[in-house]
Amino acid sequence: MQGDFAQPASGRHAGGGRLARNVMRNLGESGIEMLLFAAAAVSVLTTLGIVYVLVSESINFFGRVPLLDFLTDTQWTPLFYDAHFGIMVLVSGTAVSSLVALAVAVPMGTVIAIYLSEFANSTVREVAKPVLELLGGIPTIVFGYFALLMVTPALQRIFPRLPGFSLLSAGLVMGVMIVPYVASLSEDAMRAVPMSLREGSYGMGATRLHTALHVVVPAAFSGLAASYVLAISRAVGETMILAVAAGMRPSLTWNPAEPAATITSYIVQVALGDLPHGSLGYQTIFAAGLTLLLITLVFNILGQWLRRKFRENY
């Protein structure tokens, strides 16, 4: 750039020189734009890579195990001599632990969100939001430790017959982990509700709670629903809490007080062992991973669709 000013603007050559410089400069600019674009494209490549790896290994897997068996078998014993591959066994563990987590996260997260957006003053909010953020930032392995060595013994005092590993304690801790996520998404949704709606309600003599529950929550309903759906996808993908505290024995159960493997904890269990590359056991984790990706994808798309579809335009 300095060159432009240093060069005297006299004579024919100056004009030619500037033209050449501009050409170089434009070339440099488009080169840089290409580089930046390549960086942005890495994210697309990541997605393609995920899909390619999961699908190609799963195709090998389904070449050896029929899809129908995969979906309907009620046993999951891929590493035994009498191998069965019923993914429903793992899905049941995932579903039960996610439901327990939602039973904690949805009420707690929603109440915290309503409180923060409708009741709390700015000082409380200034303190509460970082606390929630810290809670959400705790490594899941530490939550796993918490579930196994603190929550399970505490629950065993109330229910003496609870085993040392259970979906219940893992799910409860998972719920606490997801609370900040639900709270912050729900609060954003409620903050977006215009003040005039609240003022109308207050003007009619409604209390804060009545306004919050009957005006703000219905107006922000799509955002709340989206936050719950995205919380499900979080719970389904959670790994370490379940691997540590829920036991890793596959069993088809709908009882939260039992130990069971989930899709994620099965992948961890196999990865901890030493399965040769290309064996059937190695391929099972990709088939399980593909199932997991599809489940979370459905919930993510549903969540984003909910947010867009029912977004009220004020």
């Binding site: 990541t46 995920i50 999961l54 994620t264 992948i267 991973g289």
Partner: peptide, 12 residues
């Protein structure tokens, strides 16, 4: 991508 479970990145 932000919503893909971390274990999937492990498989990738």
């Amino acid at each position: 991508l932000a919503a893909v479970p971390s274990i999937i990145y492990g498989l990738l």
